[in-house]
Amino acid sequence: MEVKRKKFQGVLNILSFNRHFYVIGLLVLCLILIVCAYFEISKILIWVISGAFLYGLVMPLIISAYVYDFSGYYDFKWFKDLNIDEKVATQIVNINAGFDETSFTIKDKFPNSNLQVFDFYNADKHTEPAIIRARKVTNEYPNTIQINTKHIPLNDNSVDVLFLLSAIHEIRKDEEKVQFLKECKRVCKENGKVIVVEHLRDVANFFAFSVGFTHFFSQKTWLKVFKQAVFKNVIEKKFTPFMSIFTIEK
């Protein structure tokens, strides 16, 4: 059963999970304005500083609303371009990093499939406040299995489609990403596909998230780890200027 999303749920999630950044940002801005007023700094400079801080706080919310609430991302409007035969793809896997907003929708798109959901969240490694808060409100799919990135508990050549939707960037070390992707390759059938959806560390996401874009990885990094994991073919398509969909084949 698909979970119906609330209006502006995407941007509200961003605001809720990252509220510490907004509190700190506003406090720093207030402190700077007090210092500027005390030393009688130029009003133009004060406006420039205020504008820069407000841009950094507000723009991520605007872009998040566009990507997650208005673009059709969670309606899987991008899915029709992946050339996946829903009748043939019967063994589906969705792997998340502790926050799952897609498994119920995937099951709705593949009603006759066997969907297995895995979560590689590691409390010792994934210590960011945002992901900890996200885990408290996630809609966990029934029978979700906790795993580590070294092993996916499935047989070789058993999966038609494996989804990694805004998840694998939480694996910060390239070596661990490669190891995990090799596991994804192992469990996929010969004609199986891994679908990776990620923001990139690029110009568009810099203007969207300012320094926050460093949480993402560049296209060069993704292509490098896909190659090191020995995938045969990689196709990248843009979904909005801010997200890339990589279809990688065994």
Rank of each mutant, 00 (worst) to 15 (best):
L162M: 09
V225N: 02
S113Q: 08
L29I: 08
K87M: 07
L45F: 11
V211K: 09
I132E: 12
S113M: 04
F120L: 00
S218D: 08
S218A: 04
S42E: 14
T247K: 14
A167V: 12
E198W: 09
F231E: 09
V178E: 03
V88L: 11
E140P: 01
N233R: 08
Q9R: 07
A130Y: 01
E183P: 13
F217T: 00
N114I: 02
R186A: 01
N122R: 11
V234R: 10
P111L: 06
T105Y: 04
K80N: 03
F99A: 02
P142N: 08
F216R: 01
I84M: 06
E101G: 10
V203R: 07
T127M: 13
V48C: 11
F216V: 02
D100N: 05
N114L: 03
K238G: 07
L45S: 07
K237G: 03
F246Y: 15
N18E: 08
L33T: 04
P153R: 05
A52D: 01
C36G: 00
D156V: 14
S42A: 12
I34V: 14
I147F: 02
K125I: 01
A52W: 05
V211Q: 01
S42G: 13
Y22F: 10
C30I: 15
F239S: 06
K227G: 13
D156H: 13
P129I: 07
L162V: 06
N157T: 10
S64H: 09
V194R: 11
R172Y: 15
F79Q: 00
L162R: 13
V161E: 03
E236W: 01
K237P: 00
W78K: 02
E183I: 03
S166L: 15
F120T: 01
S210Y: 11
Q146R: 12
I84Y: 00
G51Y: 04
S42K: 11
S210D: 03
D156N: 15
Y68D: 04
N83S: 09
Y38K: 15
Y74S: 05
V194G: 04
V196L: 08
S16Q: 07
R5I: 05
K4Y: 11
E170F: 02
S64Q: 14
T102M: 10
E101K: 10
H151T: 14
I147E: 03
F118L: 07
L164T: 08
F206C: 02
N191T: 12
C184S: 15
T214Q: 03
K224M: 04
E236M: 14
L164A: 12
K107W: 06
G212M: 07
K238M: 09
E236G: 08
G51N: 03
V93A: 10
